[in-house]
Amino acid sequence: MKFDRYDLKILEELQKNARITNQELADRIGLSPSPCLRRVKALEESGIIRDQVTRLKASALGLKLCAFIHISMDRHTPERFENFERHIREYPEVIECHLITGQSADYMLKVMVPDMEYYQEFLLNKITPLEGVTGAHSSFVLRNPVNRTELPLTHLGH
């Protein structure tokens, strides 16, 4: 899909605030409301705009421990990966799951939990017993100086 400056500006603005009204969005990008709304609908229908969510402050909800878990698997078969991924999707503590390369691990999970005690129970009772898991190495977040959801769009303007 080709993007013009209006499309890019719409995407930038909606990434900053998905709750913006169509009138406000139109004013910010320099279009009238009707064409602005048509462009937003086209971006949604094309799948570029996937969904709109509300970000919550994890620490205010008691989720004070963020961990990355590198998971090693015993076999690299589609069935083994599908089984692991099916189970991982059931755990709300898993915020992200990535199949990775270039490391000794096969998966990297981002997990949010209240504390170390909860983490230990989660790791020992839910992650390590999964069929095929041969190793789990944890890293804990000390500070998070960059935490954005906006995707960079600068490469699209070329």
Rank of each mutant, 00 (worst) to 15 (best):
M116K: 15
Y6D: 10
K2T: 11
L109A: 03
R55W: 08
E45M: 11
I88Y: 13
A26L: 01
F122K: 05
G47E: 06
P92C: 06
A67T: 04
G47P: 00
V94E: 06
V40S: 10
R50P: 00
E121M: 12
L99Q: 09
F122A: 06
E13A: 11
F140M: 10
N22G: 12
L11K: 03
A136C: 04
T101A: 15
I127V: 06
A26E: 01
H87L: 15
Y6I: 02
P114K: 14
E12A: 10
T101K: 07
V94R: 07
L156N: 08
I69S: 02
A58L: 13
I88G: 02
D7T: 02
R19Q: 05
P145L: 03
Y119Q: 11
L63M: 12
D7N: 12
L124H: 11
M1L: 14
H87V: 09
Q103V: 04
L123Q: 05
C97T: 08
R19C: 01
L56T: 09
I88D: 06
V53S: 05
N22M: 11
P78G: 11
T54F: 13
L124G: 02
A26N: 00
P35I: 11
R39V: 01
F68T: 07
K110S: 10
I95D: 12
T128L: 12
T21A: 07
A60H: 13
M116S: 15
K64W: 00
T128W: 08
E82W: 09
R50E: 15
I71A: 01
V94P: 00
L123T: 01
K2F: 12
C66H: 04
E45Y: 12
L109Q: 00
R80Y: 12
K9S: 12
R148Q: 09
M73K: 05
V111R: 07
A136T: 02
T77P: 00
T77R: 10
M1R: 14
K9Q: 10
Y107E: 04
S46M: 09
E117R: 13
P33F: 05
K2C: 01
A105D: 06
L14Q: 04
P114Q: 10
L56H: 15
R89V: 02
L43S: 11
N22S: 12
F68S: 13
M73E: 05
L11I: 03
T149Q: 08
T54K: 12
L65I: 05
R19G: 13
E90I: 00
Y107T: 02
L123E: 06
I69Q: 02
L31S: 11
F122M: 05
V146H: 05
V40R: 07
R86L: 08
L151P: 00
E79W: 11
P33W: 04
Y118D: 14
